[in-house]
Design a protein around this nucleic acid. Structure first.
Lengths: 343, 343
DNA sequence: TGATAGAAGGCGAACGTTCGCCCGAACGTT
DNA sequence: AACGTTCGGGCGAACGTTCGCCTTCTATCA
């Protein structure tokens, strides 16, 4: 418990009124160079730091940003959370803000939590991740006109600032890449249909197939929650199809599904890459070490973080961010799992 | 921006003084049941929430806990961060606290950040992760007598509250397990010698070997930063040793090294499990999906989080946590990578 | 019946800032 | 010589609480 040093202490030492010290610190009001120097000296000597609580009370601002996301179950984890949080905090600190954490499933019952946080002045604004259709958090924040920015989209008719990664373009790139490798029968490991992100990504697959003039056999599309097992069994079943219907490659909406797919193909005696192409999404740390290394799509997390924070701060200051909606492309990292190599 | 509702508004509606409302909310002072009911009703109707900034100013407490850790580089990530943060926040919220994030490398230059945070009253206390010998953050917090609790140990002569996972016991269990499987020549993939955690874990290896009467060939111990590549090349070199010196199993201090080791063994034509045993540490999500699934040590993260928060809050309230130092055992999750199976 | 204790609740002050207003001195202008 | 302007800096007030003290009222008891 370091002893409290206040404006008054600094003022006493510098021989001025404490309000004058405040003026120097905040750089408004006019103060002569000599007394200003005196005051800075006193601040230095006493190790004074402005009390953010008091300042917050006066200005009714906290300098805090709430970050909400839906935690994954322990057996899945979130491989990119570390990097993303670090990026967000970095961006926030560059603007003088700090980050508070709210890892709660985005269900309607949790909405009270946010209402409470808003009313109690806990945070100046929110960054909302793990968004989905009809997201109750977004609905609430819009209704209360509380500053926020979302990582991800929600209902198209809702008007709010967001940054998203173009999952459609990403999956399209992956699909086109497999087509380029000579694949014609390409299957899709997708998510359940309540997922906003999943729907977006799927679209990229259909677009690429259509553009290439390839028909999609309905049996080639499998939808389930993301898990290794789901990817594995889906591919197992696909490999039992007749030769002319059997897929030779799989586009997966995330890395976990892709890894399951890889394993199933290998267990069936296929060489992943040469015989059977697989791509993932997220470029989780470690997928480059799989055997073969997994082709995947990398999200520009740092950019996402910076834009999100910048947008949110605009909103906090009562301004309209411009542009209000940002969609950034992911980058396809091609590795051996999707490359035919010598033929 | 929801319109501000203050104590005075509630008081006006309930027909009492605003201080009385405060009494009701905080449950001290005596108020008749009828007026109390009136007041609660008014609170409900107006949707009043106490302004935490004002309360914080008055009580000089923020209800905020700072969480510091060293982020990993993007290609490594931190697979258990999601679960751990969720656990910590859960524990903190159960006590009415929230979590603020400080992902900064624990270097001396960063110490100013913490000094500033302490002096400006940003947080009531810190949880310090990624600890190491001579950790400047811990040194500073001890010197300033600021409340904190550490996830991990530091210099033994420093007296401060911490929770740690018993890496020594964990690696010992792993080593003993391999010995039980019939291995005699067991190698160790360790970290550089400046790592506190690494030193602790290594000890478990030596202890188990000695206990079993097995000599450790100095060539069996390889130390480096954690990476897939390091694990891979180390095993490659080991496999080139003469038959009587060649290890038949590897204990790795983390999963990444273990995965590298597995891959090297497989690329050398060995079957991981039957021919060559491998164990990791952390039980990262996904390692159960490797082929073969990786034996690893799982940390009791939820317990760690709960004890850390409980300890810290004791300190914040000026009490001495009891016990002050907690060491929890990890759990060995045995999977195929370390099991000989049919022989 | 009068003293007394306890319950109910009002009131002033303080936490550490920021903000706007005011005043005096110095200076320049007509 | 009188007046307006500008600069430097002081001062009161307010942000929304909590805390301790004080007053009033009612019930209790000797």
């Amino acid at each position: 418990m370091p002893e409290r040093v206040t404006l008054k202490d600094v003022a006493a030492r510098a021989g001025v009124s404490y309000q004058t010290v405040s003026k120097v610190i905040n750089g408004n009001g006019s103060v002569s160079p000599e007394t200003e120097a005196q005051i800075w000296k006193a601040i230095e000597e006493l190790g004074y730091r402005v009390n953010v609580t008091a300042r917050g009370l006066r200005k009714s601002a906290t300098g805090l940003i709430g970050y909400t996301w839906a935690p994954n179950p322990p057996d899945r984890g979130n491989p990119i959370l570390d990097q993303f949080l670090t990026s967000v905090v970095g961006a926030a600190e560059a603007h003088g803000y700090h980050l508070m954490l709210f890892p709660h499933p985005p269900v309607i019952e949790q909405v009270d939590v946010y209402k409470q946080l808003m009313r109690s002045g806990r945070v100046d604004g929110f960054i909302v991740a793990s968004t989905n259709y009809d997201d109750p958090r977004i609905r609430l924040l819009i209704d209360e006109a509380f500053p926020f920015a979302a990582f991800g989209r929600s209902n198209p008719e809702w008007d709010f600032p967001f940054v998203d990664v173009d999952g459609c373009a990403g999956i399209r790139m992956a699909t086109e890449h497999l087509i380029e490798q000579g694949h014609r029968a390409i299957a899709l490991l997708a998510w359940p249909d309540h997922s906003r992100v999943g729907a977006d990504r799927m679209e990229g697959y259909y677009a690429a197939m259509q553009q290439a003039g390839l028909d999609v056999d309905p049996a080639w599309v499998h939808r389930s929650e993301s898990s290794f097992q789901a990817g594995y069994t889906a591919v197992q079943r696909w490999l039992q199809l007749s030769a002319e219907r059997r897929p030779t490659a799989v586009v997966a909406l995330d890395d976990t599904l892709a890894i399951g797919a890889m394993r199933a193909a290998m267990d069936a005696g296929l060489r992943v890459g040469p015989d059977f192409g697989v791509t993932g999404f997220d470029d989780a740390p470690g997928v480059q070490y799989l055997s073969p290394p997994l082709t995947s799509l990398r999200q520009p997390l740092q950019q996402v973080a910076q834009r999100l924070v910048a947008m949110l701060i605009e909103r906090i200051h009562g301004r309209e961010p411009e542009p209000k909606q940002v969609i950034l492309p992911p980058r396809l990292i091609v590795r051996a799992s999707s490359v035919r190599g010598e033929r």
